[in-house]
Amino acid sequence: MTVAALEVADLQKTYANGVKALRGVSLAVQPGDFFALLGPNGAGKSTLIGIVSSLVNPSAGAVRIFGHDLARERGTALSLMGLVPQELNFNQFEKPFDIVVNQAGFYGIPRAVARERAEKYLKELQIWDKAQVPSRTLSGGMKRRLMIARAMVHEPRLLILDEPTAGVDIEIRRSMWKFISAINRAGTTVILTTHYLEEAEQLCRNVAIIDKGTIIENTTTKRLIAQLDVETFVLDLAAPMVAAPSVDGVRITRVDDQQIEVEMSRGHDLNSVFATLTQSGIVVTSMRNKANRLEELFVRLVDGAQAPKAGAA
């Protein structure tokens, strides 16, 4: 039987002010997985990651990293894990190269090896040319990539990224996705929290949704997407359209003169839509699936989890 890369069992956390951030979270992430942990603000994502990375003391429950209990084998467990936190947490007066080399030192990596690895990861993350400037002068995107390089320098088997692309422009975000996907393909287990649900949909094989300190969904991304019974397509038209045609079982909405949205249940064929459009003399120049399908499902799940509680109250 394969040992899970991360296993949390009945994890609970109540802060000193009485806030219950986690109410018995259990979760297993398999080795090599690319796993998304989703949830609204205040759902307990950062608390869960804080406990796993030993920055937050749990109130109850257990954490095992590749089978090593975090409470009893802290050193071994932490040596297998790398963390990219949500907030910037490096010394802004130090240089990126020194920050990465020092982090390697904290894991007992000799300085010569640490310097080689720092160069390797700073180059792979495209910030090598800024390696010797004070880190406070880096742009927001560079600072995030620096934190990824720092988390990778001891070459962990499990990498946890807490909203790594928050506030990063799309070009840099995509280069970060490329890097993270590559290390995942190379065998590193990746756990990602993100607010960009499109990111989770594109990158992650498995997804857990946490809300109010409880896991409300834990499945594969494909299965989660399959739960959507409605799909929406955006069609761009060659010429302005006066009125949207009607098709049985399909809702066609006019967005503007040259764009319509076609909403249909899964399994409904697109041929009847195109046949009707052709009969109406409407020429379609391009079509795409409307983005953020997962977002739609996410909102539905979170709302669904809240509804019974609201009713009970």
Binding site: S53, R74, R150
Partner: peptide
Amino acid sequence: YVEEMLVSP
């Protein structure tokens, strides 16, 4: 940045 040490072994 004390967290750099706290997350290490």
